[in-house]
Simulated assay, not measured.
Amino acid sequence: MRIILLVILFAFTLVGHTNEDQLREKIKKNYPDLIIKSIYKTEFNDLYEVFTQDQIIYTDVNFSFLIVEGRVVDPKSKIDLTGKRLEELTRVNFSALPFEKAIKSVKGTGERKIAIFSDVDCPFCKKLEKETLSKLDDVTIYTFLFPLEMHPEAEKRSKRIWCASDKEKAWNDYMLNNKMVKNNGDCKTPIEDILLLGRNLSITSTPTIILSSGKKIPGAIPLKDMREYLAAP
Rank of each mutant, 00 (worst) to 15 (best):
L47C: 07
Y48V: 00
T52A: 10
D54H: 07
Q55E: 11
V61L: 11
N62H: 09
N62T: 04
I67D: 07
V68W: 15
R71A: 07
D74K: 11
D74S: 03
P75G: 01
P75R: 08
S77Q: 00
I79E: 15
I79Q: 15
T82Y: 00
G83R: 15
L86H: 11
E87Q: 12
V92Q: 02
F94S: 15
P98E: 13
F99C: 01
F99L: 04
E100K: 08
K101W: 02
I103H: 07
K104P: 00
V106H: 06
V106W: 04
T109M: 05
E111D: 12
E111W: 07
R112G: 01
R112N: 02
R112Y: 04
I114H: 03
I114F: 03
I116K: 02
F117Y: 12
F117A: 01
D119N: 05
D119H: 04
V120D: 10
D121L: 13
P123V: 13
C125W: 04
K127Y: 03
L128V: 10
E129T: 14
T132V: 06
T132A: 10
S134R: 12
L136E: 12
D137Y: 13
D137P: 00
T140N: 03
T143W: 08
F144C: 03
L145I: 12
F146G: 04
L148R: 11
E149H: 14
E153M: 13
K156Q: 15
K156D: 15
S158D: 10
R160T: 09
C163T: 06
D166M: 10
K169P: 07
W171M: 14
N172S: 15
Y174K: 07
Y174N: 10
M175G: 01
M175C: 08
L176E: 14
M180N: 01
M180P: 05
N184V: 02
D186C: 08
